[in-house]
């Protein structure tokens, strides 16, 4: 058995374990057998309600969000030939946050329409921000080089975050909600999130895997990619738009969660090599499992209080980011 097959089996075990832990650990402990019984629609009614109504949708949303952000990070890093690029860095999260903040402060979050409006605004905000960043980058640099795109995204991201902070300061009655949204959470989201995110993730995954070889070629930079039959500008635009849709959808349900999109792809590359046919799905499973475990930590470490999951991912992700950055500089 080669190392990739061994790695795939270990990843599978990690995913199953993280899901079982995510569902099983809490104020009411649930054993794996009880979980499986509940999943088949049998067993204790209270446990069934807890598993199917509360913990499973939460774990599913966390897993799908981690997988989506990891896929977004992998694709962004390759499409921009930059190991430090991520949907977060390109402004998807800040844009989504601003969209959601606008809906919150306009008082449009009540009722059935409101429950859909918040993610819709987050998604639209993320997509619009990326399109704005790309339009600005194109205005500065006709060749749409990766450095211009990354810098423009970073500037827009900081600018939108500042607007959010300003709104929180000007409207103190919404400050706590905005602040919570900026840190991300999977609490009490129900099945709506997984139901929307799952098909978007599957569709984007298929489209990314179709472009796996193209992504491989793009990691060698624009000139070499062009020499190998890839139009880097057009391909980059299409890929970034897809990432914006995927990450925007994910963030719109959970709020802003950083670093997973940076950490998971790097670990996946370390374990499975740089080729996208392996590293993309591996990164998604890693990102999903990592997010479930971070969420588990977020809701249990300071129980009964809940820590924002974005804080947990940042606490683990920031040192890793520095490690990647300085390792690259040393080279």
């Amino acid at each position: 058995m080669n190392k990739y097959k061994r790695g795939a089996i270990l990843l599978g075990i990690l995913a199953v374990l993280s899901v079982l832990l995510g569902i099983g650990v809490g104020s009411v402990p649930i054993s794996p057998v009880q979980i499986l019984t509940a999943l088949t629609g049998r067993g204790d009614e209270g446990i069934r309600a807890l598993v199917l109504g509360l913990r499973l949708p939460r774990v599913a949303l966390a897993f799908l969000t981690g997988a989506a952000l990891s896929a977004g990070g992998t694709v962004m890093q390759s499409a921009l030939d930059n190991p430090l690029a991520s949907p977060f860095g390109l402004g998807v999260s800040a844009g989504a946050g601003l969209g959601a903040t606008a809906v919150m402060t306009a008082g449009l979050t009540g009722g059935l329409a409101g429950t859909f409006l918040l993610p819709a605004a987050g998604f639209t905000g993320g997509l619009v921000t990326v399109l704005l960043a790309l339009a600005l980058a194109k205005a500065f640099d006709k060749r749409l080089s990766s450095v211009t795109v990354v810098l423009t995204g970073m500037v827009i991201s900081l600018f939108f975050s500042a607007i959010m902070d300003l709104m929180a300061a000007m409207l103190p009655e919404y400050a706590q909600r905005i602040s919570l949204w900026q840190m991300g959470s999977f609490a009490a989201k129900g099945w709506r999130g997984p139901a929307v995110l799952c098909p978007v993730l599957i569709l984007c995954f298929i489209l990314f895997m179709r472009r796996a070889s193209m992504l491989d070629v793009m990691t060698f930079g624009d000139e070499q990619a062009q020499g190998m039959g890839v139009d880097p500008q057009r391909s980059r635009l299409g890929l970034i738009a897809l990432v914006a849709v995927l990450a925007g959808t994910a963030v719109s349900f959970s709020g802003i969660i950083g670093f997973v999109d940076l950490v998971a792809p790097h670990i996946a590359r370390r374990l499975f090599g740089a080729g996208h046919r392996r590293t993309l799905p591996a990164g998604m499973v890693l990102g999903g499992s990592f997010m479930v475990l971070c969420d588990l930590a977020a809701r249990t470490l300071a129980s009964p209080r809940e820590i924002p999951v974005g804080a947990v991912t940042a606490l683990l992700g920031a040192p890793f980011f520095l490690y990647v950055f300085f390792r690259k500089r040393r080279k």
Partner: peptide, 21 residues
Amino acid sequence: IRERGRNLAMLTQMHSVSFSY
């Protein structure tokens, strides 16, 4: 562009690579 890639190739000066293929 793919047809071009089948007929023309370009080798540039050596530069660092970011990903470990």
